[in-house]
Design a protein around this nucleic acid. Structure first.
Lengths: 274, 274
DNA sequence: CAAAATACGTAACATAAGATACAGCGTTCC
DNA sequence: GGAACGCTGTATCTTATGTTACGTATTTTG
């Protein structure tokens, strides 16, 4: 079976005329980058003319050059998203849990690879600001993450509210929200209409939105000030929110550190209340 | 020093207008592939117009779009040639996020190292059994995990209940519980008295308890049929529930697989109800 | 609250990209 | 050795891509 374009090429390279073979070799030599450039650049690199490149691409079964490039990009996307772990700890755990765990670990690495410290620091700083209120809400499966985050934030600072219950209930809370406030939303596929509407209204009121979503970006990204895109794919019937969970914990930690002085006092006060 | 375009973006994303920020976020979300596509595709993915993309590119310091794409390609080429550098975003190495992430990943590996496949399979089988009801409850910080698990389990099988609200409320639910039922409890330090009391009473009624706890084991372990001990230590003021979260997701996946036949029909039925 | 400044999108434009037609050349087979 | 076939490159054309100008909406500032 032929799964990659590189395989396809080496499969047919034997039956190619000289010029096209040079194109093939040039492409393989630093695959797949040459194929992402323009026909002119490709042809120059291979030392052949543009039509030869196009004939080469046609021979591989593509209708036109853009189609060929799209295929390469898709392949690259798949490669970039499932990195190292194939080679790592090969025989550690052989059971049913292993693929799931490995995928989850990969997801976290990937998620953080796309997340710079500056981004995290900015978001943490915004959450640590105590000018306004902080609201948290999530979708059908992600609302527990909102709760988790709210439970921690509420301890180290005042005015943290988790929006729960029926849509009509939290929709009414919009009236309390203004431009000094922050709304943390968790929304992964399949994106919830009600959340999108809510986010839009909040946005129009000037509320700053921090969005936790998946790599395909919830439509709420349109309204969000900060977007955290986590990887969710695992070998299961369900998507995994684990990467987002870890980002949430990281942020909780960062905010706590920033509020250390003020927070410590608050925690002591809380303790004495129990 | 700024070495990659991703860094450059996250460095300036704060000072960008809304539209360009959306472009930036979309690009970062699956970097760098979106940037290799055409302006039209990029703009569509980001939900903005083409000129906004071009302005975004110009703000990053590029003369035109092709120059920007070339830079991305060069970066990609360097990355593809030295796989080692792909492990982590250079910007995150040594940053604030890294120790937290590393510790979390270690926790998960450790947690699963102490967890045999048989254990997981047994627990999944017990949860998949449909003789009795399934109740879930958690502590102050772990209750969201109980909710998360309940949200999924409730879809693939009937009689799944998350115990929420005040202690008195769920204590009264004890009357519904019997020896055919399962109670999933999440409890990590500092262990909650109320949960321990609840677990003890449930245990006396013959309820089978599945406990998610930390490596020091909640006192509830005494009453539990199955104990999952996750690692929770991270360089933060708080403990991390991430490892337990991943175990929960793994179990959800396993149970789903076991109930595939029955579950698929149920999911279809649910869909038709929406 | 008004006015200025900035940001955004629509639409028209220029350019560069990929596609095609055709002629020259080399190779191979009678 | 001559003729037919096939491969390759040059030149031309067409498409669609990136670019720019301008009017409107939005935000910011006095």
């Amino acid at each position: 079976m032929i799964s990659s374009i590189a395989e396809l090429i080496s499969d047919r390279i034997g039956s190619m005329p000289a010029g096209e073979r040079r194109a093939a070799q040039t492409l393989i030599a630093n695959y797949p980058l040459t194929g992402l450039k323009t026909v002119a650049e490709f042809s120059a690199a291979a030392g052949v003319s543009s039509p030869t490149i196009l004939r080469f691409v046609a021979r591989l079964g593509f209708q036109n050059y853009p189609e060929f490039q799209s295929a390469l990009q898709d392949e690259l996307a798949a490669q970039l998203q499932s990195p190292a772990s194939r080679t790592l700890n090969p025989g550690s755990v052989g059971g049913a849990a292993s693929p799931m765990l490995e995928a989850t670990l990969d997801n976290m690495r990937e998620t953080f690879r796309h997340l710079t410290d500056k981004q995290l620091a900015d978001i943490a700083a915004r959450l640590a600001e105590r000018r306004g209120k902080t609201f948290l809400i999530g979708g059908r499966f992600t609302d527990p993450l909102a709760r988790y985050m709210a439970a921690h934030l509420a301890i180290i600072q005042p005015d943290v509210y988790h929006l729960a219950g029926q849509e009509s209930i939290w929709r009414d809370r919009l009236i309390d929200m203004g431009k000094r406030d922050v709304l943390v939303i968790f929304d992964i596929r399949r994106y919830q209409e009600s959340l999108v509407r809510f986010a839009e209204k909040a946005h129009h009121r000037g509320v700053q939105i921090i969005l936790f979503t998946d790599q395909w970006l919830s439509p709420i990204a349109r309204f969000a000030r900060h977007v955290i895109a986590g990887r969710t794919a695992v070998p299961s019937a369900w998507d995994s929110s684990a990467a987002l969970f870890v980002v949430a914990e990281t942020l909780i930690g960062a905010v706590t550190r920033q509020l250390e002085a003020a927070g410590a006092k608050r925690i002591r006060d809380l303790e004495s209340l129990r």
